[in-house]
């Protein structure tokens, strides 16, 4: 595997002094799909904008296909396509013309066959003569993708491509991403949905507070992330977890009337059946049981504390 994008100690402070990137280093392999997972304000858009030339880095290096993004910006940028987070399109312009503009901006001559191919793949061909403002939100997002692909980039950045998008379109979007990958395009997408990373990424990077907390193979990460919790509420409070249940690693709440059991949903056995059997054997009476999945926030907390430990 060859590295197509290399980021070294990238820092970005905005004019107001706020440091949005605090030394990010990351290598991206050619042909992979990398999902950058992080809450709002984590620095995902800043990272992408800096690589693409929309904001200036404060320090650090980025090279794209071996080309420095500052000294050799033309060669570097030619390899990159960007689908921005916000829908930004000229409302009165025809779909086809705005896609042509994108190709031209990257220095390529007009190629109607290529544009047709892209528009068809994105189900936009029928709308090519429509003004952008006549399209639905989902269609506009496709136009943004078409524009980003118009110059046949080797690397595609998708900044929260499925935020605020309905389920149908989200599935379509994933399909598009998979097809691009098959054509050898390297894809970096940001999201705050774990399921999205799970569905399409090869690797997942977790970013928070301007720092890349970790980058890992998706399968490894999902194993860590996919934890579920059962809260068992009791009719009578207890002082401590009975000895018979010590093997389960339970956490009792302050009032002693409920405890939480965590398990791995990917594990072969969840241990729920035997736990509930043993609870009954220990003479405890259940009032209620509820389950919940790890929230993104909890996962971040776990990751951060895990890193420090």
């Amino acid at each position: 595997m060859t590295t197509i994008l290399s980021i070294t100690d990238l820092r970005k402070s905005y004019a107001d002094g706020f440091e949005a990137l605090k030394g990010v280093s990351l290598d991206i392999e050619e042909g992979e799909i990398l999902a950058l997972l992080g809450p709002n304000g984590a620095g995902k858009t800043t990272l992408i904008s800096t690589i693409c030339g929309i904001t200036m880095p404060s320090s650090g290096y980025v090279s794209v296909g071996g080309h420095d993004i500052l000294n050799d910006y033309r060669a570097a940028r030619r390899m990159i396509g960007l689908v921005p987070q916000e829908i930004a399109l000229e409302p009165f312009e025809k779909v086809q013309n705005t896609v042509r503009l994108s190709r031209g901006l990257f220095g390529l001559g007009r190629d109607d066959a290529k544009i047709e191919d892209i528009l068809r793949k994105l189900s936009l061909w029928d709308k090519r003569k429509n003004a952008v403002k006549e399209l639905s939100g989902g269609m506009k997002r496709r136009v943004l993708i078409a524009k980003a692909l118009a110059h046949e980039p080797r690397i595609l950045f998708l900044d929260e491509p499925t935020a605020g998008v309905d389920v149908e379109l989200r599935k379509d979007m994933w399909e598009i991403v998979r097809e691009l990958k098959e054509n050898g395009v390297t894809i970096i997408l940001t999201t705050h949905y774990i399921e999205e990373a799970e569905a399409i990424a090869d690797r997942v990077g977790v970013i928070n507070g301007g720092e890349l907390l970790l980058v890992e193979d998706k399968d490894n990460l999902m194993a860590q992330m996919g934890r579920k919790h059962i809260e068992v509420m009791l009719t009578e409070p207890v002082d401590a977890i009975p000895d018979a249940l010590k093997q389960y690693d339970l956490t009792l709440n302050g009032a002693g009337n409920a405890f939480v059991y965590s398990y791995d949903i990917h594990g072969e056995r969840t241990g729920i059946t035997s736990l509930l059997n043993d609870v009954a054997k220990a003479g405890l009476v259940l009032r209620d049981v509820q389950t919940r999945q790890s929230s993104l926030e909890e996962i971040f907390v776990n990751l951060v504390s895990g890193e420090q430990a």
């Binding site: 693409c52 929309i54 916000e86 930004a88 409302p91 901006l105 524009k147």
Partner: peptide
Amino acid sequence: YFPKFLGTIYEVLSAPI
């Protein structure tokens, strides 16, 4: 001004020009 206002300026800024 319009590209700035609409946000479409991102494309000009990220193009090799």
